[in-house]
């Protein structure tokens, strides 16, 4: 897959890429992500490239690509200044459709949660008791997600596409183990999968807003994405909201609005 596409022009002339050949990491819905280096070969970076979409009318495509790169860079810059954990922007060319970002180590939250859930013996059962003691590491992760989303919203930014694929788990320098060592290697690996700092990525659909409505819709997108990606852990989502509610003054009113959003229109059956 990594050799299927021609490299975006920037990676064929960007001087720092000569020391480390760029590699295609993933083809997301929005574009392709390459790993390369910036300025020094010891400084890894992510190059986000939005190729022209062959299905889209060229005028519409150019308009959307430029606007989205610009908006994304702006939002990331603002998050960085406000201390929200996101990758820093190193360089960009909006019209050419690329942006060079800080490289975030680790795996997506989605993968971490799946490792955690997959390792559970009772695979067919939904996690029921929200305060299930065995779930503590996952619950802690959920709380960290809530806190980070809260910090994002406090800066007046709406992510627009919150999913567990759009959050990275940046490994801690030292591992925190809450369980006894007797649990063995498998349990430790399982626990490590849900450890790390949550870093938000992919701000391609981010907007600026401080309204309860927009914040609530942002949470709702995450809630539904979570329920469809991790149906068995659906019940644990309340921990995200709980932690979110403690992050800033207006957060509780966002949660009230979220209840409205859930009930609204065609989103929901009107029965029962």
């Amino acid at each position: 897959m990594a050799t299927e596409f021609p490299l975006p022009p920037v990676l064929t002339y960007y001087p720092s890429s000569s020391s480390t050949p760029p590699s295609l990491i993933t083809q997301g819905a929005e574009g392709r992500l390459y790993k390369s280096t910036h300025l020094a070969s010891s400084r890894p970076c992510a190059l986000k490239y939005r190729p022209p979409k062959p299905y889209r009318h060229p005028i519409l495509d150019a308009r959307l690509t430029k606007a989205r790169i610009q908006a994304e860079a702006k939002v990331l810059d603002r998050c960085c200044r406000e201390g929200v954990p996101v990758p820093a922007v190193y360089a960009m060319d909006a019209a050419a459709g690329w942006m060079m970002l800080e490289w975030i180590e680790g795996q997506p939250v989605r993968a971490g949660i799946n490792v955690w859930l997959g390792a559970r013996p009772e695979t067919d059962e939904a996690i029921d008791a929200a305060n299930d003691a065995h779930q503590t590491p996952l619950i802690n992760l959920m709380e960290r997600i809530g806190t980070v989303v809260g910090a994002l919203h406090l800066t007046g930014i709406i992510h627009g596409d919150l999913t567990t694929s759009n959050m990275m788990l940046q490994p801690w320098k030292t591992t925190h183990t809450s369980q006894q060592q007797t649990n063995g290697e498998e349990a430790a690996a399982k626990e490590a999968a849900v450890q790390g700092d949550v870093v938000l990525i992919d701000f391609g659909l981010a907007t600026t807003s401080s309204s309860d409505e927009d914040r609530a819709v942002d949470l709702y997108v995450l809630e539904r994405a979570f329920a469809s990606t991790h149906p068995r852990a659906e019940k644990l989502f309340e921990h995200v909201l709980e932690a979110y509610g403690k992050t800033f003054k207006k957060a509780p009113s966002v949660l009230v609005k979220l209840a409205d959003v859930r009930m609204r229109g065609r989103k929901r059956s009107m029965l029962g």
């Binding site: 519409l60 959307l64 596409d161 999913t163 997108v221 994405a225």
Partner: peptide, 8 residues
């Protein structure tokens, strides 16, 4: 207008 919100 072009109105995509996440996957909606």
């Amino acid at each position: 207008p072009y109105a995509v919100k996440g996957m909606d």
